[in-house]
Structure formats: structure tokens, C-alpha cells
């Protein structure tokens, strides 16, 4: 059975095609049209495998853009999808930390991919991928190089959580002559602290998996491990956890409808 999960985030649209235990993915920048970028990611995926829409049993959409999608069979929130996807990627995960473009979430699960409790940042970019991006541009760096640039650096204290204020803080630290790598390390630690505070309310997990685009940043991961006092699992596909979770849930939905058909 072939199913597809589409995760339209604020920065990127991800599509995952799942066939038994094999899966393929496409990632595209969301840009200003979530619907179009999701569609393009989906079409590209079909083209790559050489199948038509008719051969797909079920398509589940997730992420902020999920409501804008007109080619999906159902929509599920990214919280439920990340929990499922993280369990698939790292079996037995019971705490998921998902930091995406505009959200950070902490999800406690039952160790089987089912959500028990969750916390999510307010309508503000503090502690998200967007925060890192703004800071990177203030530092004249690309967001993808932050971790490498700050490896082993001593973090300075970044006291502002607000993206706008933190940017001024970074500018003034630079003016004081503080080394770039120390500022970057400080930024990573401030993101980790923000998310760890959210996690604190949910209780600790025994197997923590870090998902979302920011999971690719080894600096944030390191400070998260320090703040949470736990080992953090990151896999190369961590950014795809949401779309993968959606594809897995799509498979469950398709099986339910198949059973109904058998019965009828």
C-alpha cells in the first residue's frame, strides 16, 4: 500500500511517500504559496517514483499550510504527526522536541507514538528557526553554518527572548567586540533554554528525539542535552518527521477504510 504525507511548514514543504517500509521524500521552500509549493513537492515525488495519484491509497496533510491543501484526504495537526514520525525514526521515543520555522513544541508520548501531553510556544518567534535565521543575518552568516561556526565556543549570555530585542542585543555585543562564535553559542543556548523550560512543565522523558528543521543544528542539540540532562536523538531525516508521521497516519486511515469495505 502506498500512502503520502505532506507537511507544509512556514519555511519548507515536505512530502513523504511511504510504501511498506520504504519511503522517499522531497523538500521545497514554502515561499509565499503553501498550496503551490506543497503541490510541487507532491508532483515531484510522484514523478520520481513514476506513479499516478490513483495509485496512492491515502494522502494526509499536516503543518501550518494543511488547511490550504485541496488534494489531501484528511488533515492532522503536526503535533500528532511528529509524535508518530519520531517514534518511527527512533523507536521508543517518549519525548519529542520539535523546533520548526515558526514554532517550537515539546510533545510527551506513550513510547508508541501516541501523544499524552504537549506544550507549544506562543505567537512569537522566540526559540524557533525564524529566531535563528534573524540572528544569523544580524551576524552576516547563513543559518546552516551557525553550528560549525560556533563549535566549542564559550556561550555569552543572551538575555532577550524576543527576536526583535535579541537582534539589537546581538548587534550591541558585536559592537563591544565580543567574538561572533561566542555570540552564536549564546544564541543556541538561549533557544535550548527556552525549549527546556517548556519541556520542564511536561516532565522528563527517557528517550528524547529532536525533530524539525532546527534539529540539524548540532549547537542547539548540544545545549538541549545540557539543559535537559538527557541524551538527544537526532537522525538525518529529523526534518521529515512530520511528513513521515502524516504518511504513517495515512496508512492507518487507509487500512480502516479497507476494513470497512471488506465488511460492507
Amino acid at each position: 500500500m502506498i500512502t503520502v504525507g505532506i507537511d507544509v511548514g512556514s519555511m519548507t514543504a515536505k512530502a513523504v511517500l511511504l510504501n511498506d517500509n520504504e519511503w522517499l521524500s522531497v523538500i521545497r521552500p514554502t515561499g509565499c504559496s503553501p498550496r503551490q509549493s506543497a503541490r510541487e513537492a507532491f508532483d515531484e515525488l510522484l514523478q520520481e517514483v513514476g506513479i499516478s495519484t490513483g495509485e496512492i491509497s491515502h494522502i494526509t496533510g499536516t503543518g501550518y499550510g494543511r488547511i490550504a491543501l485541496d488534494f489531501i484526504d484528511n488533515a492532522v495537526t503536526e503535533i500528532t504527526c511528529h509524535a508518530r514520525g519520531a517514534h518511527y525514526l527512533v523507536e521508543g521515543t517518549d519525548l519529542v522536541i520539535d523546533i520548526g520555522g515558526q514554532d517550537s513544541k515539546v510533545i510527551r508520548t506513550d513510547g508508541q507514538g501516541n501523544v499524552i501531553d504537549f506544550a507549544m510556544n506562543d505567537k512569537c518567534a522566540a526559540g524557533t528557526g525564524r529566531f535563528l535565521q534573524v540572528m544569523a543575518s544580524a551576524l552576516g552568516a547563513d543559518v546552516s553554518e551557525l553550528a560549525v561556526l560556533s563549535r566549542g565556543a564559550e556561550p555569552v549570555e543572551i538575555s532577550n527572548m524576543c527576536t526583535v530585542f535579541a537582534e539589537s542585543e546581538v548587534v550591541s555585543l558585536l559592537a563591544q567586540g565580543v567574538a561572533k562564535e561566542n555570540i552564536i553559542a549564546g544564541i543556541h543556548r538561549s533557544v535550548a533554554r527556552r525549549v527546556a523550560a517548556m519541556a520542564g512543565r511536561l516532565g522528563t522523558g527517557s528517550k528524547v528525539t529532536f525533530t524539525g528543521g532546527v534539529a540539524r543544528n548540532a549547537g542547539v542539540k548540544e545545549f538541549l542535552a545540557e539543559e535537559l540532562g538527557a541524551e538527544i536523538n537526532v537522525v538525518s531525516a529529523s526534518q521529515l518527521a512530520g511528513a513521515l508521521g502524516a504518511a504513517l497516519l495515512a496508512r492507518e486511515m487507509a487500512k480502516i477504510s479497507l476494513r470497512r469495505l471488506d465488511y460492507g
Binding site: V76, D103, V115, M120, K123
Partner: peptide
């Protein structure tokens, strides 16, 4: 949920509330 009367956070609320309902259904 902490919010105000404005509609500016409807989407975030929708995600939280949606996930909560999914959890209850589960």
C-alpha cells in the same frame, strides 16, 4: 490556553486545540 480577544493567533490555537482533540479521540 492563554490568549486575548483578537484573531491574530487563530492558527496557533487551531493547532493546539486540534492536537488536543486528536489526543482525546485517540
Amino acid at each position: 490556553l492563554e490568549t486575548d480577544y483578537s484573531t491574530s493567533d487563530l492558527q496557533q490555537l487551531q493547532t493546539r486545540i486540534g492536537a488536543f482533540i486528536e489526543l482525546l479521540n485517540n
